[in-house]
Amino acid sequence: MKASKVAVVDYRTSNLLSIVKALQKVGAEVEMTQDAEVINNADRVVLPGVGAFGAAMRNIESLGLREVLCQFGRSGKPLIGICLGMQLMFDVSYEQGKHAGLGLVHGDVVEFPSGSGLKVPHMGWNQVGFRKDSTLFHGTRDNDYAYFVHSYYVRTDDSFVAGSTDYGIPFPAVVESGNIFGIQFHPEKSQNFGLKILENFLRV
């Protein structure tokens, strides 16, 4: 099989070493890029992300990548957002204010309710329950553990939720809308389960 050309979008907010190494491990040909041309020509695009929503969107816009990513999303080629990258694909986030996202999937991003006695950020290994028969889950086990680090979560239509996790409330851990995917946890830190999901993404 020819290695899939995967563009990992580098918009200066996060350390990309682990995600690049994980994608390479499962057989991808990876390029970290800020270049519209490279993104347009990629077979698949990964939008990673750690940090604040507002700052991430500002960086994406100042690099001129907002429309490039939206176009790629509409092209039908597989696009996956990871952690903050997943949240960026939705309409709006209420993280420290109100920020417009890429709007590729309908839904919003809100903070875990405080006062529930649960510690925020939600950090550590938690279970992902299958809600849909997603290609991303092929060869994985229902309710296996993934590594999460986040304080905000996505609210979206159930029809987009492929995998769900409970932390006081159930929230989407994996979303899927046609060629667009999102993973709230860190597959690059979730050992075999995470690697398998990335490998499956290369086969979508």
Partner: peptide, 8 residues
């Protein structure tokens, strides 16, 4: 280490 293991 980060290049070879996929754990926090």
């Amino acid at each position: 280490t980060a290049e070879t293991i996929f754990l926090p």
